[in-house]
């Protein structure tokens, strides 16, 4: 097997690049969509609140693998043809957005009620109050849970292998087929995943100290 080190490293490297790209897309999308859904869930308009609640209920209660299968095989049936990578990343972003939404909501709840009252009493509207007073102070309690979501999101990209994306886990499966050494190939991928998640944990800790609001 040692004669194939270059080939193996190259394959895992390509897998890692796909995993990183998918994680970045899914997580960025999840934060963007999750923020919007969270704003809907706390806004003063009842139908929008109901829509936000419905979104979270739907996407948080479907197993991600099922969601991936529905997107990958269901969308083409509806005539919506997108590249596999984009479809899978979108499904993941929508799924994790439901979790981001709940983290944002609890971050907003952690800001003392009087802050919003003072802002409203000064004549700030809902959006201004949220943007200038509440969200800046809600960021800190959100950092660690968002770090956990990032880790969950990064690791969940391994499910994409099941619908045919050749990311890290997909490459481990190829290596297993080729060299018949399942433990070795999956041990190697595990090391790469752990390196990825440990790094993100460190980053979350740094960010948290940066955005602290002293009370």
């Amino acid at each position: 097997m040692f004669t194939h080190v270059d080939a193996i490293a190259g394959q895992l490297g390509r897998g890692l690049l796909l995993t990183l790209a998918m994680t970045a897309l899914a997580f960025t999308g999840a934060v963007a969509v999750g923020l919007v859904v969270a704003v809907l869930r706390i806004c003063p308009v009842a139908p929008l609140r109901a829509f936000g609640a419905g979104y979270v209920t739907v996407f948080r209660n479907i197993p991600l693998l099922v969601l991936l299968v529905l997107f990958v095989f269901g969308l083409p049936d509806l005539g919506l043809l997108y590249p596999l990578f984009a479809t899978v990343s979108t499904a993941m972003a929508l799924y994790w957005a439901a979790f981001v939404c709940e983290v944002v909501r609890s971050g907003v709840r952690a800001v003392p009620r009087g802050q919003a009252e003072a802002a409203r009493a000064l004549g700030l509207g809902f959006g201004q109050c949220l943007r200038h007073v509440i969200l800046p102070q809600a960021v800190r309690p959100m950092v660690q849970p968002l770090g956990s979501i990032f880790i969950g999101c990064a690791l969940s990209t391994s499910l994409a292998a099941a619908v045919g994306v050749a990311e890290l886990t997909g490459q481990a499966e190829f290596l297993t087929l080729r060299y018949d050494q399942p433990l070795t190939s999956f041990a190697l991928t595990t090391v790469v995943y752990v390196a990825l998640t440990l790094t993100s944990g460190l980053v979350a800790g740094r960010v948290e100290r940066k955005v602290a609001v002293v009370r």
Partner: peptide, 8 residues
């Protein structure tokens, strides 16, 4: 307000 509510 009683509790000031300055923006922290």
């Amino acid at each position: 307000f009683q509790s000031f509510n300055l923006f922290g």
